[in-house]
C-alpha cells in the first residue's frame, strides 16, 4: 500500500514537471520588470556590497568576487 502511495506521489510529481512552464503568449506577467529575478540590480549591488563587508559570506545569487578591501 505504501509503495503504491509512493509510486502515485512520484507519478504526480513527474507529471507535474511535464506541465511546468508557459506558452510564449502566456509570458505577460513574467515579462514585467518587477518579475525579473533581480528586479533592481542597483539595490542588489548596494546590498551585496554592505553584506560582503559585514559578513563572511558573499555571492550565491551571482559572483561573490572581491573588489573591495573591506573584508
Amino acid at each position: 500500500m505504501k509503495r503504491i502511495a509512493v509510486a502515485a506521489a512520484l507519478i504526480a510529481l513527474l507529471s507535474g514537471c511535464a506541465d511546468l512552464g508557459v506558452k510564449p503568449w502566456q509570458r505577460d506577467i513574467l515579462a514585467q520588470p518587477e518579475m525579473q529575478l533581480i528586479s533592481d540590480p542597483v539595490e542588489a549591488g548596494l546590498d551585496d556590497h554592505i553584506y560582503f563587508s559585514k559578513e563572511a559570506t558573499s555571492g550565491g545569487r551571482g559572483f561573490g568576487g572581491g573588489g573591495c578591501g573591506c573584508n
Partner: peptide
C-alpha cells in the same frame, strides 16, 4: 532558471 507557471519563476 525554471518558469513554473504564468505567475511563478
Amino acid at each position: 532558471t525554471q518558469v513554473i507557471n504564468r505567475r511563478t519563476l
